[in-house]
Design a binder for these strands. Structure first.
Length: 169
DNA sequence: GATGTCGACGTGG
DNA sequence: CCACGTCGACATC
C-alpha cells in the first residue's frame, strides 16, 4: 500500500505493509499523479500510521525530535541489516556516529563496510537516521538518495557540515 | 607527515 | 566473482 505525505520540502512517498512502514522515498524530480492515492482510501490502521509518519517526518525536517513513530516493518531485511538499522535508530537527533561505531555496537567491529551496505539498503531513510552515520575520516560518505539530502538533513539538526570546502581538521 | 595498498564484512548483481 | 555510503594497519616516500 502506497501513499504520499506532504512536507515543506516536497512530497515523500511512503509504503506500508500489514505490520507497519516498509518504505519511504524522497521527493524526486518525477512526480506523476499516477500514484495519487488519497488517505481516505486506506484501511483505518494504515491511515493512522500515515498520520504518524507525516508528523514524524515533518518534525525531523524541522529539526525536532518526533514525539511518535509509526511501527516500522523491518521484516524485509536480513538479520544483519535489522541489527544495523536498530542500532542506527538509537542515534539521538543532532548526534552522529561513524560506520565503525555502528559496526562495533552490533558486535561486528570488522564489518564496517557491510554496515555501509546496510545503510544503503535502509528502506526508511529519515526515520531510521542513516544520514547521521558518517565516515570516521570526517567526510560525509555517500548517500543512496543523494548526498544533497544527507547534507540538508544534517543541517536541519544543527550539524552544519564542515566538509564541502572547510576542512575537518 | 603525507599517501598508497590491502584485508575484513555482508549483500546484491 | 566484483563492487559498494568504510576503517585501520603497515609500507614507502
Amino acid at each position: 500500500m502506497q501513499t504520499q505525505i506532504e512536507t515543506p520540502d516536497g512530497v515523500f512517498i511512503v509504503t506500508f505493509s500489514e505490520h507497519g512502514l516498509t518504505g519511504l522515498e524522497f521527493p524526486e524530480v518525477e512526480r506523476t499523479c499516477a500514484q495519487q492515492r488519497a488517505t481516505w482510501n486506506l484501511p483505518p490502521k494504515t491511515g493512522r500510521w500515515h498520520a504518524m509518519t507525516v508528523r514524524a517526518v515533518v518534525d525531523i525536517l524541522a529539526g525536532r525530535t518526533p514525539t511518535a513513530l509509526p511501527p516500522l516493518d523491518f521484516s524485509i531485511g536480513t538479520d544483519f541489516q535489522k541489527s544495523v538499522w536498530a542500532a542506527i535508530s538509537q542515534i539521538g537527533l543532532g548526534k552522529t556516529q561513524t560506520y565503525g561505531q555502528i559496526a562495533a555496537s552490533i558486535g561486528k567491529p570488522l564489518a564496517v563496510r557491510a554496515v555501509g551496505g546496510a545503510c544503503g539498503a535502509n528502506p526508511v531513510p529519515v526515520l531510521v537516521p542513516c544520514h547521521r552515520v558518517l565516515p570516521k575520516s570526517g567526510g560525509m560518505g555517500g548517500f543512496s538518495c543523494g548526498s544533497e539530502w544527507k547534507r540538508r538533513l544534517l543541517a536541519r539538526e544543527g550539524i552544519l557540515f564542515p566538509a564541502l570546502g572547510a576542512a575537518l581538521k
